[in-house]
Design a protein around this nucleic acid. Structure first.
Length: 259
DNA sequence: AATCTCTTCAACCGCCTCCGG
DNA sequence: TCCGGAGGCGGTTGAAGAGAT
């Protein structure tokens, strides 16, 4: 236990975190893991600023949180990524970009750090710059506005029910350009919107360099369907609407880069 | 066997957003 | 409205192990 240094300052003052100079860094020891685990079991997750003091650890709150989320949490799945998981990861990355936490949220038991590491280690290398001759269609996230009541009839925004599933996002009528920031999207619209998301994720046209090597078996597609559910619905159901905001940001960025 | 190079991944860092006072 | 603290995220680093020479 010699390497677990409980700050005297923490003991004496009861401060939630020790001064940065005395906070331990680097690899976690088995003893530290045990202390952190016991603390989380006793008090539950959250209030990370209290964890170092409660657990008797000379670690900063962020370090404790990261250690728990990336390593100690019981439902973390370890080991190599299955083909299905890789397939899903690629599709989600096509859709969401480097939103590792969002991608990890759809991969049961995988952490954002795992996904990020796997991507940077294995998949990024497989990416090949597209040949100028090839016309790669870039899929961009759609702008969504949650300000419209869900039960509103959406005939104004999407009066062509045929285009939703197969059209490109850029051509989608849900991208409203009129009346300033009143662009809106009605989630109750119809199944076309669900199909739009699913088609985006189930699209066989993978970017060059990866994905093409992956077999899209029936079981694999089933896995993807089950894992994804309806991403759009998931995003809406989440408490954190910032996810949707991020899609807006992406859309704006895409428009800036592709005027 | 020794050394060098490459790979992996746990952990840190800095920034952003959210929230309460 | 502003400010500070907490939570959370993505980018990056570096130690350790594996493989090559």
């Amino acid at each position: 236990m010699s390497n677990i240094l409980i700050s005297d300052n923490v003991r004496r003052t009861g401060l939630m975190e020790a001064p940065s100079l005395s906070v331990r860094k680097g690899a976690w020891t088995e003893e530290e893991d045990i202390l952190l685990k016991k603390c989380i079991e006793k008090y539950g997750e959250g209030t990370w600023h209290r964890v170092p003091f409660r657990a008797g650890l000379n670690r900063c709150r962020k370090s404790c949180r990261l250690r728990w989320l990336n390593y100690l949490k019981p439902d973390i799945k370890r080991g190599a990524f299955a083909d299905d998981e890789v397939d899903l990861m690629i599709r989600l990355h096509n859709l969401l970009g480097n939103r590792w936490s969002l991608i990890a949220g759809r991969l049961s038991g995988r952490t954002a750090n795992d996904v990020k590491n796997y991507w940077n280690t294995y998949l990024r290398k497989k990416m090949v710059k597209p040949s100028p001759k090839l016309n790669i269609e870039v899929i961009k996230p759609r702008p969504l506005n949650l300000s419209v009541p869900l039960d509103k009839n959406n005939s104004d925004n999407n009066n062509d029910s045929d285009h939703a599933a197969a059209s490109t996002p850029a051509s989608n009528s849900l991208v409203s350009s009129d009346s300033g920031n009143n662009s809106s999207y009605d989630f109750s619209n119809d199944n076309n919107e669900i199909m739009w998301w699913k088609n985006m994720l189930m699209n066989e046209d993978e970017p060059q360099g990866f994905g093409n090597n992956i077999n899209h078996s029936a079981s694999g597609d089933k896995f993807i369907n089950e894992a994804l559910g309806d991403v759009r619905t998931q995003v809406v159901e989440e408490d954190n609407y910032g996810t949707v905001d991020e899609l807006f940001i992406d859309f704006d960025l895409w428009n800036m880069l592709n005027p």
